[in-house]
Simulated scan of single mutants.
Amino acid sequence: MGSLFEELEAREAAARLRVEGLEAELAELSGKLDLARESLERLRITRETVAAVLAEMIPEKAAAFDADRPTASEPTTSAYAGAERHVVGVLTVPKWQPGMGVEVLPQVYRDILEVVADAPGPVRAKQIVPRIGLPAETGKIEGTRSKLKRLVERGWLDEDTPGMFTPAHPRTGKPPNSR
């Protein structure tokens, strides 16, 4: 066995190597952190810019909609041709009106209406979630409850007892998936 000083020198050398390794890791992580911060800042600026542009565009589009509408003889080219654009302010769940069918609704709302219509009585959101193919997790239940409330607001469902949903309008004919 070596002397005490040799042992201390060996431990000091090992500690020095460990410190140098950690400093290298810290420098690498610091560089990654700087890149992540730059990316975050670019995304923040982009979001603010898009929000400002949309805020400016919406009143212009609404006021100039009829004036700018192309006639049958004018070409309908756009700077955004071929690009996917999302329409702001579209009502995906319209208010129910006599004669309106479920085909006007997005698929998930149709599935919810079908489950509620097929149930023998009032149903809760947590009973609907597994029947529309979602896992029975809190987030999925709350999302479905939100959709149920929206369907109640728009006249597609009734909620006589809080949290218990029933069809607002009896179905005529057979359900679309029946034989």
Rank of each mutant, 00 (worst) to 15 (best):
V53K: 02
R18Y: 08
G21F: 00
E48D: 14
R47P: 00
D34F: 06
A27M: 10
E28N: 04
L17P: 00
T49C: 12
G31P: 02
E20F: 01
L17I: 05
E28I: 13
E25K: 14
E12W: 11
L40P: 02
A15E: 06
A36N: 06
A10R: 14
L33H: 15
E25R: 09
A14F: 00
R47M: 05
E48M: 06
A52E: 14
L26A: 13
L17H: 12
G21Y: 06
S39K: 10
L40V: 10
R42S: 03
E25D: 15
L29R: 05
A51Y: 01
S30R: 15
E41W: 09
T49M: 09
E23L: 08
R44G: 01
R37I: 11
A13C: 13
E25L: 13
R42P: 00
L33E: 06
A15Q: 04
A36P: 03
E28W: 07
A27P: 00
V19W: 04
A15W: 08
L26F: 14
A14K: 15
R37A: 10
L22Y: 12
R42I: 07
R37H: 01
T46F: 13
E12S: 14
L40S: 05
E28R: 15
L33A: 11
L54M: 10
L40T: 03
R44S: 08
L40M: 13
V19H: 00
R37Q: 09
E20L: 12
A24G: 09
R37Y: 02
R42F: 02
L40R: 02
V19T: 09
E38C: 02
R11K: 09
R16M: 04
A52T: 13
S39P: 02
L43C: 05
L17C: 07
L17F: 03
G31E: 05
L43D: 04
L8C: 07
L35E: 15
A55V: 08
D34H: 12
E9C: 12
E48F: 03
A24E: 09
L26E: 06
G31Q: 05
V53D: 00
